[in-house]
Computed example of a mutant assay.
Amino acid sequence: MSEAPEEKAAAAVPPPARAKRVQGGVATADVVLSAHSGGNAELFPRILALHVPPGAVIADVTYGQGIFWQRVPPGRYTLLPSDLATGTDCRALPHADASLDALVLDPPYMEGLLRPKAATRGGLGSHAGLRNYYAAGGGHPATAQGLAGGRWHQAVLDLYLAAAAEARRTLRDHGILIVKCQDEVSANRQELTHVQIITGLAELGFYARDLFLLVRANRPGVARLLRQVHARKNHSYFLVFQKVPAGQAVGRYRTRDLPLHRP
């Protein structure tokens, strides 16, 4: 049976073209980059702007002289600053469970600051209090609480992990943890501290959301050099983590916004 004329006409009409997908956004070079040359005060506000929404409650538990916050617009966040001067150990915080949106951690990250013997311990000036309190076997109150860490570079890593465990307790689900660290050479052994922290925090239930490399603007000096074996470190890291809710696999977690919930 031959097709009717109207059926032939319908068959000859091509299907309508699919609408092209139009990408949103605008072209720009004004973005936050992963590598930065300069100081902490310049980079830190950019990290906050990218990862922590305005109005968030942020505890900086190693506040010190507040260098990180020098260029953060006042009033943008609710800041809870604390450190040894306020009697606060970053491994034993006064905050309630799941009470914080974000937490900032910048403890001593060089093994020389935490050596068991005070005579060989590094660090002067503003570092003196940190090195004496957090030093391995230093006899500080944390020792009685079972918070004292190992020796040499292990003391550095133990301090980070213990503080991160306390951060997990005080952060609400999907909360942000910003960690400052630096790699080091200890006892002629290359210690990639930032890798060790990322691995250790994954085991604690933190997703590594971002990484920033900060290169110092000037060249570091060396007082005595017999023979160079490793590259001299002139960079540090800001690591940004997100608290994965209990029961969820870190390996399957994806970056998500941090909506603020207030009563």
Rank of each mutant, 00 (worst) to 15 (best):
A119M: 03
K233S: 12
R262K: 07
A118Y: 02
W152K: 03
A17Q: 13
L43H: 06
G38S: 00
L213C: 13
G112T: 06
L161V: 00
G137M: 11
A148C: 11
A12C: 15
G24P: 14
A118S: 14
E184F: 07
E42G: 09
V240C: 12
V61Y: 13
V57L: 13
A17P: 15
R254Q: 13
D101E: 14
R209H: 15
A165G: 04
V72E: 04
A162I: 01
E3I: 04
Y77D: 07
A59Q: 05
E3G: 11
R46D: 06
A246Q: 02
T88Q: 06
Y63D: 07
G146S: 09
R169Q: 06
I178D: 15
R189W: 03
P94V: 11
R219L: 07
P81C: 08
R115T: 05
H140D: 11
D60T: 05
V52T: 02
M1I: 08
E184K: 05
L214P: 01
G200Q: 15
L43P: 02
L177E: 09
G38C: 00
C90H: 13
E111M: 12
P108K: 04
A85S: 06
S236F: 07
K8N: 15
A223D: 00
T28F: 07
V104R: 13
P14W: 11
S186V: 05
A27N: 14
E42F: 01
P245K: 11
H230R: 14
D183V: 08
A246F: 04
S186M: 04
A41M: 09
D210N: 14
L100M: 14
H153K: 06
L105N: 12
A102N: 15
T143R: 10
A4G: 02
P263W: 11
A202Q: 15
L48A: 10
E166G: 05
K117E: 14
R169T: 06
D30C: 03
G38N: 01
D89H: 07
E184H: 12
L239S: 09
P116W: 01
P220L: 01
G112Q: 09
